[in-house]
Amino acid sequence: MSIRSQLLKGILEGCILSIIHMQPTYGYELSMKLQKFGLSDVSEGSIYPILIRLQKEKLIIGEMIKSEAGPKRKYYHLTEEGKAALQQFIANWEAIKQPVDKIIDKGGEET
């Protein structure tokens, strides 16, 4: 797997945890939210392998719940481990975001 897609996968995982943390979400809704935030580069379905992995790691739990519109849908919510993993992701992201932003802003010049 290329570094680029591996990096993207990790970030996508963090974003998915973050969205599910806001409120229990089902697959389609989740991919729409990601797109609305501007992550339109990823195909809608690419969340599903990640959702399976997050379930395997017990960070999220999926439950079939009757939705307001009628049909039963699989809604995901975070577990305690999931919340911890999200905090970890946010911390990692903050640690990398600022330095990267600075490097790009200054064009690599030392301040």
Binding site: G27, Y28, S31, S43, E44, Y48, P71
Partner: peptide, 23 residues
């Protein structure tokens, strides 16, 4: 479970006239 999820997804996409390749 996942087969049902992607079927649901595809059905919504179809209702919105989106091609399967987008999914």
């Amino acid at each position: 479970e996942v087969l049902l999820e992607i079927l649901d997804h595809l059905l919504i996409a179809q209702a919105e006239n989106k091609p399967a390749a987008m999914v």
